[in-house]
């Protein structure tokens, strides 16, 4: 039985900018069950990080609109009082590995302390107990224990990335948001970290939202994949289905752009660039770049259409299917 951990309904986030409002997340819905991982993929600027920050309620000050529903284990997060949210949800129920882990640590406080801090402040643990737990967590992400005494600038990029994951696990959260946790790392380190994440998912039964623009990486760990384009979900479905039978032209292009060792064809790049969200194109947002565009696409925006078991695509082509 799938036990739903996270339920996002029609989430909308806009930023205020000097040249008008910018809807970065525009009506996104999905749900996530315990022990499940969802990959959120898409080009830069698609709104992935905005979505994660909205879940953590850490959006920057210049947000002009935040609408929709977010439920974590049945609790409405957006309606919650700030102090209660901080005290009961952040890091304890839901933790996040931020994009840009290299700057996630306070430069003048020892790494161990930073990992242990929430356990002391929120969990009421003694310093010693929290230190021991931090040591254990470092072991979980395969870091030597002596790291605890080090300052952030003494760690390599890969070490910091792991330490950030260890820090996110500190309060045994039910849901882990990972925003490009490996993008700054070289391939070997990336593979190691992915292996550890897989282990964590299995052992701790963690639910994960895995944000990346590398759809191949997402396929490695995720049960479902959501493809975002210009603030909207373009395609959402079980990972195997999305990878094997991509329905949305954008997903297909994303897959085609992957370098594949087995094929002779060189990887293709997606022509054009994402639209300016302040003035999105009429009709389908992808139509200026879509190789399969036809008349209707320019006039009417397609809704998410079912294309299989739990598989949806925001494309008029899907309508023709039985």
């Amino acid at each position: 039985m799938r036990q739903i951990v996270l339920e996002v309904r029609d989430l909308r986030v806009s930023y205020h900018t000097p040249s008008g409002d910018l809807p970065a997340v525009d009506g996104v819905s999905f749900s996530l069950a315990q022990g499940e991982a969802m990959g959120l993929v898409g080009e830069s600027g698609a709104g992935k990080s905005t979505m994660a920050l909205a879940l953590m309620r850490l959006l920057p000050r210049n947000v002009s609109m935040l609408e929709g529903g977010i439920e974590l284990e049945g609790r409405d997060l957006l309606g919650m009082d700030e102090e209660a949210f901080r005290h009961e949800v952040r890091w304890q129920k839901m933790a996040m590995v931020f994009q840009g882990a290299q700057e996630a640590f306070n430069p003048v406080v020892r790494v161990g302390e930073q990992i242990a801090e929430p356990m002391v402040v929120l969990g009421g643990m003694t310093k010693a107990a929290a230190g021991a737990e931090a040591l254990r967590l470092l072991g979980v992400v395969r870091l030597p224990g002596e790291i605890i005494q080090r300052y952030p600038h003494e760690l390599s990029g890969g070490m910091k990335q792991r330490a950030v994951i260890a820090m996110a696990l500190a309060m045994k959260p039910r849901l882990l948001l990972l925003d490009e946790p490996t993008s700054a790392l070289d391939v070997t380190v990336q593979a190691q970290i992915m292996d550890q994440l897989k282990e964590l998912k299995q052992e701790l039964g963690l639910a994960m939202v895995f944000i990346t623009h590398d759809i191949a990486l997402a396929s490695d760990i995720c049960d479902t994949i959501g493809v975002m384009y210009a603030g909207k979900m373009a395609e959402l479905g079980p990972a195997e289905d999305v990878l094997a039978k991509p329905q949305h032209p954008y997903t297909r292009l994303l897959l085609a752009s992957l370098p594949r060792l087995s094929q002779d064809a060189p990887p293709q790049f997606i022509p054009g660039s994402p639209p300016d969200l302040r003035m999105p194109p009429r009709g389908c947002r992808f139509h200026p770049r879509c190789p399969q565009v036809f008349g209707r696409c320019i006039l009417e925006e397609p809704p998410l259409l079912g294309v299989g078991e739990g598989h949806e695509s925001r494309c008029w082509l899907a309508e023709d299917r039985p």
Binding site: R90, M96, F98, N106, P118
Partner: peptide, 25 residues
Amino acid sequence: EFFVTVARAKGLPEGRVMRRYILRV
């Protein structure tokens, strides 16, 4: 700085964020 956002994400109270993450740095 980014680590201040992280500190908030960790659920630390504002006062502590100010002292340890802003003033201290």
